[in-house]
């Protein structure tokens, strides 16, 4: 029982990280129509930058973190202007492939600039080794911070999007580009801000994942991205809350399945095999989409005639 609770807790943390990434994915998708497959690479680039700040000039953690988040904003702006803008008119498939090309370029640049990241390295944070105990359950400091950050971010984002003019402008742009333009909203600026915000979210997710794993290398975000996309799609790809819930579901499912299957066998097949878990998660995802084609939390499909 305790093991299950521990795993659920851990799954919740993993899920909130997927949810954070899914959030950024949906944000970009809703406003700019781009399925951003370079999202993981963006997160990895900023996290690598933080790593270099921490190990090269050996900056203290919090100033380095601040600098990295600023770098994330800058990177988002750069990507929007240099990459997303020229491709704005391209078909959706072209944009998707372009983001993949961007991911390749980012990864190569990171590797070329900071070759020490080609092999796994230790990611130093002041949170290591500390944990909170309550009742037989352990919650490491990083995990606790992750949950806290998620909750705060969600609250801030909700307030921003619902209460501020800029937030409303973003939502308007997401709803209908033409209408937003007609209302005088500077759509170009909105696009820029959306990419910067999404980049920031990616950076936060990447840094938290790195802090949790304590080991990173240049490809450390690769396996996470597809799961985040699945979370985003389960969430319906149209509401931010859906994205977070979808991501949380994937994280929980992953952990609980791992616990349930470990140690059991079906004949000669070891059910604890991670391949089986992966297969089950993707099979479940496909089946869920068949039952609810718009995702678990998605809105109804409207077709304009």
């Amino acid at each position: 029982m305790l093991a299950l609770l521990q795993v659920l807790l851990s799954g919740l943390v993993t899920g909130s990280l997927y949810g954070l990434l899914a959030l950024g994915i949906v944000l970009i998708y809703r406003t700019t129509g781009v399925l951003n497959f370079a999202y993981g690479a963006l997160a990895a680039t900023v996290t690598s930058f933080l790593y270099v700040l921490l190990t090269g000039p050996r900056l203290p953690f919090w100033p380095a973190l601040l600098l990295s988040l600023l770098f994330a904003l800058l990177l988002g702006a750069l990507v929007e202007r240099g990459f997303a803008r020229p491709l704005l008119a391209a078909p959706i498939l072209t944009k998707a492939i372009a983001t993949l090309a961007l991911a390749l370029v980012l990864q190569t640049v990171v590797q070329a600039l900071w070759p020490q990241l080609t092999s796994p390295v230790h990611f130093p944070t002041p949170f290591e080794g500390h944990a909170l105990h309550f009742g037989g359950l352990y919650l490491s400091l990083v995990d606790g911070l992750t949950l806290l950050t998620m909750v705060l971010l969600l609250i801030v984002l909700q307030l921003f999007l619902l209460r501020t003019r800029l937030g409303m402008a973003m939502r308007a742009t997401a709803d209908s580009l033409e209408a937003a333009r007609l209302m005088g909203i500077p759509v170009g600026l909105i696009f820029l801000l959306v990419w910067m915000l999404a980049s920031l979210l990616a950076a936060v997710a990447g840094i938290l994942i790195a802090a949790r794993q304590t080991v990173i290398d240049v490809q450390f975000m690769d396996p996470v991205l597809l799961l985040a996309f699945i979370g985003a799609v389960l969430g319906g790809l149209d509401r931010l809350e859906g994205a977070v819930l979808g991501g949380a579901l994937v994280g929980l499912a992953e952990n609980v399945l791992a616990l349930l299957l470990a140690g059991h066998s079906l004949g000669a097949l070891d059910l604890g095999n991670p391949g089986i878990r992966e297969a089950l998660i993707f099979a479940g995802f496909v089946l869920l989409l068949l039952l609810r084609p718009r995702g678990l939390f998605g809105g109804a499909a409207l077709r304009r005639v």
Binding site: V7, S10, T14, V224, V256, A258, L259, A262, G272, G275
Partner: peptide, 18 residues
């Protein structure tokens, strides 16, 4: 006891519990 993992796995809490 033996637990498998794959190269891209990020979370080991279930493996630990087992």
């Amino acid at each position: 006891a033996s637990v498998g993992y794959n190269a891209t796995q990020t979370d080991f809490s279930a493996a630990l519990q087992t």
